[in-house]
Computed example of a mutant assay.
Amino acid sequence: MTTPTQFPLPPHFNLNKIGEVYRVPYQQRASEAEAWTKQHNILPASTDKTRICLLLIDVQNTFCIPDFELYVGGKTGTGAVDDNQRLCAFIYRHLGIITKIIPTLDTHTAMQIFHPIFWINANGEHPTPAATNITPTDIEQGIWQVNPAVANSVTGDYELLKKQAFHYVKQLSQDGKYPLTVWPYHSMLGGIGHALVSAVEEAIFFHSISRKTQAQFELKGENPLTENYSILRPEVLIGFDDKPIGQKNKNLIQQLLNYDAVIIGGQAKSHCVAWTIDDLLTEIQQVDSTLTKKIYLLEDCTSPVVVPGVVDYTEQANATFAKFAAAGMHIIKSTEWVIGNW
């Protein structure tokens, strides 16, 4: 196995700004990237004989910047910031061999099934976000019910919406998925939380200019009737009436299967990262199980959801990654990544 050619970190890269929100000076960075390309003889991505994709899951302010809505602090409390320091360095050091970067963007509006406004109790109160899971029993016993006031914005029919919501919660339980969690309003479309972390966006832009290749932004989570942890499919595909709620991202699935290597990092290890990889594993096993060997998981560029005193998904995340490794995927650190005999 051979170690990839690693480039130095460019002068503009500042580890101390990873946890900040700032404006990327695009024109300046573009000029610097052009000069960097000449200095280090970096070829266009179109010339790559080995095509490598870097899939970045939800590296957005809402998950990665302290004091934002769903900051993924992990066990240390600084998880996502530390992860992104390593992730940015990984992009810059492997600038010449990453063919395509695909960032996903969790994308939400107010009236969605996992937001507080969607549910009320007998007193008309909304559930406490991040501390409330809703089960079929909760709905049957009247502990939580769909808020009639949101029906007009979602389906236009309250009775239909109630049936759909109950079916959804029951389906999650039957499929062995996490119960419906009521999350704080987050990744709101048009808001600053929806944006990529500034330092990561800057690295992606620098890569695009240096390699003459467009980053491919993939949105997920817009559907008001289902969660969408995975970029490859929503949590539930079919509604109570056997009609589709959502659909798989078939184009992206096929695209990922066609790369020589797919490297994955982002947030959170226990949720959107785990669900995406799990769905990718399912697709691989339906085609050719040996394809798992070309999947590389950047374990030091992802952290689990940990809310001190409330919930800790560390063990579940580690168990899930162990399953991926057993299936043939490579669990690696950003400083250790190597290319096989290509």
Rank of each mutant, 00 (worst) to 15 (best):
M1S: 13
T2L: 11
T2R: 10
P4N: 10
T5S: 13
Q6H: 09
Q6S: 10
F7M: 08
F7D: 04
F7G: 00
F7H: 10
L9A: 09
H12V: 00
F13T: 11
F13H: 13
L15W: 09
N16M: 08
N16I: 01
K17E: 15
E20F: 12
R23P: 05
V24S: 05
P25W: 08
S31F: 04
K38M: 06
Q39E: 15
H40P: 02
H40K: 09
N41H: 11
S46M: 08
S46H: 06
I52W: 08
I52Y: 00
C53T: 10
C53L: 00
C53H: 08
D58I: 00
T62Q: 10
F63W: 07
P66M: 01
T76E: 15
T76C: 04
G77T: 03
G79L: 02
D82M: 06
D82E: 14
A89H: 05
I91E: 14
Y92R: 03
Y92V: 01
G96P: 07
I98N: 04
K100N: 10
T104K: 02
D106Q: 07
T107I: 03
T107R: 12
T109H: 13
T109E: 15
A110V: 15
Q112N: 14
H115Y: 04
I117K: 11
F118A: 08
N123W: 09
H126T: 14
A130Y: 11
T135P: 02
P136K: 05
P136I: 01
T137L: 15
D138H: 01
E140A: 13
G142V: 12
N147K: 03
V150L: 03
A151T: 05
T155C: 03
E159M: 01
K170W: 02
K170L: 04
Q171P: 01
L172A: 00
Q174R: 02
L180C: 06
L180V: 07
L180W: 01
T181E: 15
W183A: 11
P184V: 15
S187H: 11
G193P: 02
H194M: 04
H194F: 06
H194Y: 07
S198H: 09
I204P: 06
F206P: 05
F206M: 12
F206D: 06
F206T: 10
H207F: 05
Q214C: 05
L219I: 05
G221K: 10
E222N: 13
N223Y: 00
P224E: 01
E227K: 04
N228Y: 06
Y229A: 14
S230T: 12
S230I: 07
P234D: 10
V236Q: 08
L237C: 08
I238L: 09
I238N: 07
D241T: 08
N249G: 09
L252D: 02
L256T: 11
D260P: 00
A261R: 13
I264N: 11
G266I: 02
A268G: 09
S270W: 08
T276K: 06
D279M: 01
E283N: 09
D288N: 14
T292A: 14
K293T: 11
I295L: 05
D300Q: 08
P304V: 07
V306S: 08
V306F: 03
G309W: 02
A317W: 00
A319E: 15
A322G: 07
A322S: 13
F324P: 00
A325F: 03
A326P: 01
A326S: 15
A327Y: 04
A327H: 01
G328C: 04
S334F: 03
W337S: 02
W342Y: 07
W342A: 15
W342M: 07
